[in-house]
Amino acid sequence: MLKLLTSLSIAALVSLTSLGTAQAAGEAVELKSVAWKHGGIFGTYDRAAAQRGLQVYREVCAGCHGLGLVAFRTLSDLGFSEEEIKALAAESDYLDGPDGDGEMFDRPGKPSDKFPSPFPNEQAARASNGGAYPPDLSLITKARPNGDNYLYSLLTGYVDAPADFNLAEGMNYNAYFPGHQIAMPSPISEDAVEYSDGTPATVDQMAKDVTVFLAWAAEPKLEQRKSIGLRVILFLLILAGVFYAVKRKVWSDLH
């Protein structure tokens, strides 16, 4: 019986594993792999990197990409103070109203507001970007297979196209983008931002930092999830042990 159980569970596991890789594979390009601090069972977000990543997002990405699901107030997760968050939010204007006279008016952003969208709608975004639509980045690392590594690879993957590659007008070659033709030109260049903590702003560093920030934006509850998970599983292990002992005891008087 035990043999039956193990063989079937092994079979199921094998099929599940192959399934995951089957879905993740897609294009046959192997992504660069980074040992993210937020990976693994105990991993937590690197706060300093995420704070730098926010700077990269705001100074580099935000011109074209929205972050419409993330509220300024949640930045407190990354160690920003209430004052910093208020100041950050107030830098953008939001349409509000109507006021007492029925007029709509602009007001400075509040911590309860979400990050502003650079374009009023998808059509406007496409019109400003040669027909391509810069996606909202709120969920980008969860919306791509192996998202963290994909994003990092993509941002650092702008290389010269092979000589025989037929690159369409206005497109850019990227080693990791599916099909290799991407409308977005290489977004980050050396020293594109100046980090206040003195970290050298290399392309590699900025790509990593913005990836950490966007990974947090996509899965802000990751740390809570892992710490609750650990306690739940430890509890269940003890529970299973005690239940097993009870089961043995109950069954022992059976002949």
């Binding site: 509890f235 269940l236 003890i238 529970l239 005690v242 239940f243 002992a245 009870v246 005891k249």
Partner: peptide, 20 residues
């Protein structure tokens, strides 16, 4: 005694887990 202890432990843990 051992059996009683086991039953109480199992019941207690089960109750705690359910409440959580």
């Amino acid at each position: 005694k051992r059996r009683d202890f086991l039953y109480i432990a199992a019941g207690g843990l089960g109750a705690v887990g359910t409440a959580a």
